[in-house]
Structure formats: C-alpha cells, structure tokens
C-alpha cells in the first residue's frame, strides 16, 4: 500500500497511491499531518492572543495588534481601506498560516523510519499551488462581486483589446508564480538543511565542517520564511487590488 517516493535527498514520503482504488487519487499523509498541525498552532496562538482583550493592550494583545497592523499596512499599500478591510481576515490567515508553516520546517525535520513526516506544509508544490489558486479564484470572485460582471470583462481589454490573450495568460502565470515561489524557497531551504544535517551527522570532520553552515542556513531560512509569508500576502493583495480597484 505504501509506495515510497524519493524525497529530500534520501528520505521517502508517506504517500498512498491509488486511494480507494481510484488511479488519480493519492495522498501524502505527511502533508495532511503538517497542515493539521500548522492550522492547530495558528488557531491556538491566535485564540490565546485574543484572550482578555482590553482597551489598554498588554502582552499577547500587543503582538496580535502588531500583526494586524502589519497586514493592514500591506492592504493599505495596494488598495484603499474601504474595500481593503474586507480582505483583512484573508490576509491575516494567509500570513500567519504560511509563516507558521514555514517556521515548522525550518526548525525541525522529522523522519520516521525512512519517511519524512515532519516538514513544512509549504514545501509541497500541490499545497502552495492550492493556496495560490484559491487566492486567484477569490480575486476573480471579488472582482465580479464588487465591480459587476461588465467591468470585470472589460478589464480584459484594457488598456487596449490586443492585450486580451496576454491578460488571460497572466491569470495562469500569476497562479503559478505565486505558488511556486513559495514552494521553491521553502523546498530549497529544506533540501539544503537536510544535506547539511547529513554532512553534520556523517563524521567528526563532517560535524566540524557542517555545524556552522547549518546554523547560518537555518537562520537564513527563518528569514526567508518570514519574507516569503510577507511576499505571498503582499502579492495576494496586489492581485486582489487589480481586480477590485477602479484605477490601474
């Protein structure tokens, strides 16, 4: 039932192919686990942060409001706040989910047997592309909802009609770049971390040579994780503003 794919240098992934005997249905159990863990961590952190809200913020409430203001700033950069506040929960959830997901993979990678179970959920192209596709679908949905179908269709022929094919391609390229950027950064980070772990644990010499680059790369990965969460949220709002704002 388990077919081991080769992932992260020499570790497999807990992939079940042909689920329920359906040939195209497959599942990577590690992804499911990490999505669940990430969601739970985000939810618990947010709810803990939102306990005992007061007019004078203290402790966790300050952190929550800082994150909120941060995402609010991202939205304010791309569109006016009147329409933008509609997307604040989306931006917040995207930012926190991707940030926590990125950090999980940077801090630890867990291998059970030969399978890689504990990793970033965002280091999987299927997951990042699902997120980016969801974002693009939402931009179209809100574009039609807020500006009407006529304006939405007209936008494909602006500023002049020959650009129509390019506009169509743009929608798909946006989806691909948004998802694959996140995946690529996180996956590369994890591959390099796995390589350095392999080097560090191989021998004494390897430990001496690999420990410092490992620490450096881990720090850099944390930085990349934060930046990528920010970029994903930022671009989401940019694409959203292209669809919902009057001016371009």
């Amino acid at each position: 039932m388990f077919e081991r794919g080769v992932s992260k240098v020499d570790h497999g992934a807990p992939i079940i192919e042909n689920l329920f005997g359906i040939s195209w249905l497959s599942v990577n159990l590690s992804n499911i686990l990490m999505m669940f863990i990430t969601s739970v961590i985000v939810f618990v952190l947010c709810v803990l942060g939102a306990r005992r809200l007061q007019m004078k913020p203290t402790g966790a409430q300050n952190a929550m409001e800082w994150v909120l203001d941060f995402v609010k700033g991202i939205i304010n950069d791309t569109m006016d706040w009147k329409t933008g506040k509609l997307f604040l929960p989306l931006g917040l959830t995207l930012f926190t989910y991707i940030l926590v997901g990125n950090m999980l993979g940077v801090m630890t990678n867990g291998v059970v047997g030969h399978d890689l179970w504990w990793k970033s959920p965002t280091a999987d192209p299927g997951i990042t592309l699902t997120l980016s596709a969801m974002v693009i679908v939402l931009t179209h949905f809100y574009g039609i909802k807020l500006r009407g179908g006529k304006e939405y269709v007209k936008d494909y022929f602006r500023p002049m009609w020959p650009l129509f094919p390019i506009k169509i391609v743009e929608e798909f390229s946006n989806t691909l770049t948004l998802g694959l950027r996140l995946f690529g950064n996180l996956y590369a980070g994890e591959v390099l971390l796995a390589l350095l772990v392999g080097l560090t644990t191989s021998s004494w010499l390897g430990f001496l040579g690999g420990a410092i680059p490992f620490l450096a790369w881990q720090g850099f990965s944390i930085f990349i994780g934060g930046i990528q969460a920010f970029i994903f949220t930022m671009l989401t709002m940019v694409y959203m503003s292209h669809k919902v704002s009057e001016e371009h």
């Binding site: 689920l19 497959s26 947010c46 989910y97």
Partner: peptide, 30 residues
C-alpha cells in the same frame, strides 16, 4: 516524486483546512 508530486487529496484537504481556519480565527481571534 522528489517534489512530492501533486496529490489531489492533499490539495482538497489544504483548501478545506485553510477555509476552516480562516472562519475559525476570524470568529474567535481576529
């Protein structure tokens, strides 16, 4: 396989989890 491939169940689950998370954190936290 090295990239993990596209797993339909993963993608559907991700979408489901994300939307549930979105609704929950909006209601209880943000």
């Amino acid at each position: 396989a090295a990239l993990g491939g596209f797993h339909v169940v993963d993608m559907i689950t991700q979408l489901f989890f994300f939307l549930i998370l979105l609704i929950l954190v909006r209601k209880f936290a943000w």
